[in-house]
Amino acid sequence: MRSPHRRSRVVPVLLCALVLLMSRPTVSVADDTPSGDGPAALGLSAQVVRLYEDAAQATSRYERGRQEAEAHRAQALRIEKLLDRERRELGVLREDLGRIARAQYRTSGGMPLTAQIVLASSPEELMRGQHVFSQTNLAVNNAIEKSRRAEDRLVKDEAKAVAAWEGLQKRNTELAELKKTVERTLDEARWQLQGEADAAVAAGSCSGAVRLDQKRKKLSTAWVAPVETYALSASFGSGGQRWAHRHTGQDFAVPIGTPVRSVADGRVVKVSCGGAFGMEVVVLHTDGYYTQYAHLASVAVDQGERVDAGQWIGQSGTTGNSTGPHLHFEVRITPELGSSVDPVPWLEERGVHLG
């Protein structure tokens, strides 16, 4: 059998790992925001983009914390097993004490040890009596000391295990609350942005390009999807009560304020803020095709401006004839409605696979 003392050394090591996780400071949104440049100091469109980044970071921290907590929870369960083993070994030590006491009683025949020594009939018998006394006393003392140490260790390890579980729960609660706060702030800002967009569409005029601070990425292809993360909804040619004939584009279900990007290099030929498409941008590409981005909540380019593949040209919304937040994306052979082709195979021919 392994020594319980050796096993017990594993417990503090695992518990130290848990303590290190718990001792990390909770990061708030403001921790990543330089003084004077917080979300409140930015324009609403830029604020939404910033909050998207904050939400992504908070979600990432939450997921990392959750995964670490799960890993350490498994370690904590192993600690609990070690504690159970310590409890069983402590029970064995206590049984040993009882066995030694019973053996001592049987060996002495119920007669006090001092009387046995006094009544010894020879020096040899006296020496044997002293030896028995010494060995018995040593065994009892060792058993008592081992039992005492095991009890002390068990009490301390149980207290550490409880503290570790409580700390993990506290850390998870803090991470979840941080994530919830950022998402709530983002949701409020998104609908405020949508409100401003609805007012602009109702007035039939755009307020001008909102320049968004984009961290440009090196693209491996000349063509990209119009949004990075999405769920495909209404497809090209599908029927619906809100369309006069058939759906003329591909819809991407995304939250309000999601950055919308040009699928390739081109020139902006139209920026409009009225009509069934609400706030929209149309781009002419070098191969002669036009792409339309409709139902936006803001535009980030001006008419006549040149754009690069992947460049943000606006933010998604639900302006115009729309039932909910999404990007309506069309590919046309002319800049006007009525010349559209199916965007999905068109993009696939250019190496962009949607799904």
Rank of each mutant, 00 (worst) to 15 (best):
S122C: 09
E158P: 02
E145Q: 13
N142F: 05
S121D: 11
Q104L: 08
A163G: 14
T107L: 08
E145K: 13
I144M: 08
E151M: 02
Q135A: 11
E166L: 13
Y105D: 10
L138S: 13
R106C: 10
L119Q: 10
S122W: 07
N141A: 11
I117C: 00
G129M: 06
E124S: 14
H131D: 12
S147A: 15
A164L: 03
P112V: 01
M127E: 15
V118G: 01
R106E: 15
E151F: 00
I117D: 00
A120K: 03
P123H: 11
L119D: 12
T107P: 01
D152K: 13
G129L: 05
A163V: 15
N142M: 05
F133E: 06
Q130T: 15
L138M: 10
T107W: 06
I144N: 05
E166T: 15
N142Q: 12
S121Y: 04
E124K: 06
V162W: 10
K146G: 09
L154S: 08
E125M: 11
V132Q: 07
P112L: 02
N137S: 15
D152L: 10
L154T: 02
Q116Y: 08
N137I: 05
E145R: 13
V155D: 10
A161P: 00
G129Q: 07
A161F: 02
G129S: 12
N137A: 15
L119G: 05
A115C: 06
Q104Y: 01
E124L: 11
R106H: 14
V140M: 10
W165L: 06
V155M: 08
